[in-house]
Amino acid sequence: MAISKKDVEHVALLSRLDLTEEEKHLYGEQLSAILAFMGKLQELNTDEISPTAHILPLQNVLRKDMPRPSIDQGEALQNAPLQEKGMFRVPRIV
C-alpha cells in the first residue's frame, strides 16, 4: 500500500511533527514498505477473534481517594524550559 505525500503531511500534522521535503519523501517510501509488510496480517481470518490489549486479567485497579504527599511546585517546575510565577510559560495561545 503506497502512502502519498498528502498522507504523510496529514499524519505529520496529527503527530505534531514538522518534516522537511526530504523527510516527507523518505518516510513516504519507508512507511509504504513497512505497511506493505504489515498487510500480511490480512491473510488471517480474525472475524471471531477478540482483541488483546494487554495480557493481565486486571481491570479497573482503584485505590482509596486519600490525600498523600506528592512532589512540590518547585520540583515539578525544575525541568521546565520556561517558567514564570510558579507556572509553565508558553507562547501566547489566544
Binding site: M38, L41, Q42, L44, T46, S50, P51, A53
Partner: peptide, 10 residues
C-alpha cells in the same frame, strides 16, 4: 487487526 492477531499469538 494487530490486537486480534496478538490473541492468536498468545
Amino acid at each position: 487487526k494487530a490486537l486480534k492477531v496478538r490473541t492468536l499469538v498468545k
